[in-house]
Deep mutational scan, measured.
Amino acid sequence: MDETGKELVLALYDYQEKSPREVTMKKGDILTLLNSTNKDSWKVEVKITVNGKTYERQGFVPAAYVKKL
């Protein structure tokens, strides 16, 4: 869990989004878990840094590609 009590997951593999509802992640990324009720895909939040500014983006990733921490 992070400092706000949200559950975290670790990306086990790289994943490139295939639709606007998904998010891209790299192996080793730590993501905030938002919903894990679907056995196939979990909703997560990723933090992306562009030019020194951090943005948050929500979307789905394959459940088999992440592990709860």
Rank of each mutant, 00 (worst) to 15 (best):
V50F: 09
D29A: 06
P62I: 08
Y13D: 06
G59M: 06
T32D: 02
Y65N: 05
L34A: 01
L12F: 03
M1G: 13
V44R: 00
V61Q: 00
P20F: 08
L69P: 01
K53L: 13
I48Y: 13
R57V: 08
T54A: 07
L33W: 02
L31T: 01
L34C: 06
K39N: 10
Q16C: 12
I48E: 07
V61R: 01
T54N: 07
D14Q: 03
E7Y: 12
E3G: 14
L10E: 10
L69M: 09
T37K: 10
S19H: 11
E22F: 06
E45I: 14
E17T: 08
A11E: 01
V50G: 04
L12G: 00
T32F: 09
Y15L: 02
I30M: 05
D2N: 14
D14Y: 05
I30K: 04
N51V: 04
V66W: 03
N38T: 05
W42H: 00
K39L: 09
K43Y: 15
I48M: 10
K39Q: 11
T54E: 09
A63C: 07
M25G: 01
M1Q: 12
S36V: 05
V46R: 09
G52L: 04
E7V: 14
R57A: 06
L12D: 01
S41D: 06
K53E: 11
K27M: 06
K53F: 13
D2F: 14
K6W: 10
T24M: 04
A11G: 02
N35G: 05
L12K: 03
A64N: 12
K18T: 11
E22V: 04
M1K: 13
G28H: 04
V23K: 01
D40F: 14
M25V: 10
V46H: 07
K27W: 04
L69K: 00
S36M: 09
E45R: 11
R57S: 04
L8T: 07
K47S: 12
N38C: 11
K47V: 11
A11M: 03
D29K: 03
R21M: 14
Y15S: 01
M1A: 13
K39T: 11
K67H: 09
P20T: 09
T32N: 06
Q16S: 11
L8R: 11
R21Q: 14
M25P: 01
K67Y: 09
L31E: 01
Q58W: 07
D40E: 11
V44I: 06
E7I: 15
K27I: 05
K26I: 07
E45K: 12
G59T: 02
G59Y: 05
E56M: 15
D2E: 13
N38I: 05
E56L: 15
L31R: 02
R57C: 08
V66T: 02
L10P: 00
Q58H: 07
D2L: 14
S41M: 15
N35R: 06
Y55F: 13
K27F: 04
T24G: 08
K39S: 11
D29I: 05
N35M: 08
Q58A: 10
K18R: 13
L8S: 06
L69Q: 02
V66H: 02
E45V: 14
Y65F: 13
E22L: 04
L69D: 01
E7R: 12
S19M: 06
A63G: 03
E22Q: 06
Y55V: 12
S41Q: 14
K68D: 02
T54G: 04
E56V: 15
Q58S: 11
V50Q: 09
L34Q: 02
L33S: 03
Q58N: 06
M1F: 13
R21C: 15
K6F: 11
A11H: 03
A11K: 03
V23D: 01
L34H: 02
K43L: 15
D40R: 11
Y55A: 05
A64M: 11
V46L: 12
I30H: 02
E45L: 15
V61C: 05
E3Q: 14
R57Q: 05
D29T: 07
L69N: 01
T54C: 12
E22Y: 06
A64Q: 10
T4C: 15
S36R: 07
S19Q: 06
N51G: 11
Y55I: 12
Q16K: 12
L31Q: 01
Y55P: 00
V66Q: 02
